[in-house]
């Protein structure tokens, strides 16, 4: 069995950029790149280059790459795709040659993959701008839980910063245990904590408003046009758990 050399980075986007930059410099073509907390298989040989966080290097990278390309790399990084690091490596590599023309080179496998994935991430972000549901807590703070496939809480928080800029709110990514806290000025990201928020902490009005919304939701559908498939296509079941009008829905009423 062949051994596989796996280059690792410390989970952050910048450290991934730093690592790949170093690989390019040393003309190393990696067999794989993984975050340091991945679970290695038997034949993986882990290589940790222990690259120093060098602000200058990062700045150079950011200045060198066009914002389109950097954005694409970032979106792919946020995805849950298991080959994302290699895709980033190759996409970046091609971009050195093609510059901004890279976006038209969809006949190259890694380019096509990167563009597809980044589109997928941005689509999920857009979807959650709509599907996210806040609940009001007794101290008027708005609280929402999400469980997205991709790690989009950073992107999503930008939207709500503008939209609810005069409210205190908190979003929790339940899958990754990341919280975004907004204090009417800035967003803070916290991870690793875990506290449960349930109906006990809801404000007096919360139940009432939720049930008004469910009433509206039920009423607005036209029974003569019923189309469950269409509904599911646009609002996939994986999101239902956190969409209040869908969550406790007894399956039957939708069949």
């Amino acid at each position: 069995m062949n051994e596989k050399y796996i280059y690792i980075y410390n989970n952050s986007f910048l450290s991934l950029l730093n690592l790949i930059q170093t690989l390019f410099k040393n003309k190393i073509v990696p067999q794989n790149i993984k975050p340091q907390d991945y679970s290695p298989s038997l034949f993986d040989k882990i290589v940790n280059l222990d690259i120093k966080e060098d602000e200058q290097v990062i700045e150079d990278i950011i200045n060198y790459l066009s914002s389109n390309i950097l954005n694409t790399l970032y979106y792919v990084y946020l995805s849950s795709n298991e080959h994302k690091e290699l895709i980033i490596y190759y996409f970046w590599g091609h971009s050195l040659k093609y510059k901004n023309k890279i976006f038209y080179m969809r006949n190259l496998k890694s380019v096509n993959a990167a563009l597809k994935i980044s589109k997928y991430v941005s689509r999920e972000n857009h979807r959650l701008k709509g599907f996210l549901r806040f609940k009001e807590l007794s101290n008027r703070i708005l609280y929402a839980e999400i469980a997205p496939e991709n790690n989009i809480i950073f992107l999503l928080s930008k939207h709500f910063r503008k939209r609810l800029n005069n409210e205190y709110w908190m979003i929790k990514d339940v899958k990754r245990n990341i919280y975004c806290l907004y204090d009417k000025k800035d967003c803070f990201f916290v991870d690793g904590q875990n506290f449960e928020i349930g109906p006990k902490q809801w404000s007096m009005d919360e139940n009432n408003i939720q049930s008004l919304w469910k009433t509206f939701y039920k009423t607005i559908g036209i029974s003569q046009r019923k189309n469950k498939r269409c509904q599911m296509n646009f609002m996939p079941k994986k999101y239902w758990k956190y969409i209040i009008e869908m969550s406790e829905d007894d399956e039957e009423s939708y069949n």
Partner: peptide, 12 residues
């Protein structure tokens, strides 16, 4: 932005 989809598949 679509926030939900009704039982008839139309965006809310």
């Amino acid at each position: 932005i679509c926030h939900s989809f009704a039982s008839d598949g139309r965006c809310i």
